[in-house]
């Protein structure tokens, strides 16, 4: 069940409608979105376009570095992905099982699909517990240091996408 009365970005939009929406970093760029969703203002990562169920182009034109992505995924104050997902991060003994096992994610999803799920998962599935890592929109009561900031930067998301796209189940 979704939380009642909770404004979630993209909640009322079908995937087809979402395809046409561009999320913008600037308030101007985000006007359409703001008008449609009546969500609060906030910083965002780079403009991106959802095509099908993926984001084809790298965020902000950044090139992802898989090794850096592995670090971002492991770091507790950044991605902290293993809190919810099984991942080839052998230094962490216990991995969560809240989200799907990602140890061979590249055999199931393309980089574009992975990018959408990391950057803006709730655009696809508003009820998911996995938050949008590239957006600070529609957030409530964010603690001071994090206010207006997306969870990860464009570069960090591209790094994580690059790393996840390399996982085919062969890593320890």
């Amino acid at each position: 069940m979704p939380a009642a009365g909770m404004p979630v970005p993209g909640r009322k939009l079908s995937v087809i409608e979402m395809k046409r929406i561009r999320l913008g970093r600037t308030r101007h760029g985000g006007l359409l979105l703001l008008a449609l969703l009546a969500s609060g203002a906030g910083a965002d990562c780079a403009t991106f376009e959802i095509v099908g169920d993926g984001i084809t182009l790298p965020l902000g034109g950044q090139t992802g570095n898989p090794e850096a992505g592995r670090r971002v995924a492991a770091e507790r104050q950044r991605g902290d992905c293993s809190i919810c997902h099984q991942l080839p991060l052998p230094n962490d003994h216990f991995h969560g099982n809240v989200g799907p096992d990602l140890t061979a994610i590249s055999t199931r999803l393309t980089p574009a699909q992975i990018r959408l799920r990391v950057a803006a998962n709730r655009q696809m599935n508003p009820e998911s517990v996995m938050p949008d890592y590239c957006s600070s929109r529609g957030r409530h009561e964010v603690a001071g240091p994090y206010a207006g900031e997306p969870i990860l930067t464009d570069q960090e998301i591209e790094d994580v996408v690059a790393w996840l796209s390399s996982l085919d189940g062969s890593a320890p």
Binding site: R76, Q77, D80, I83, H93, F94
Partner: peptide, 15 residues
């Protein structure tokens, strides 16, 4: 085998 170690500094690692 320790599920949650002592001496954790970072709050968010303490779930």
């Amino acid at each position: 085998m320790v599920t949650l170690g002592a001496c954790a500094d970072d709050l968010y690692g303490e779930f």
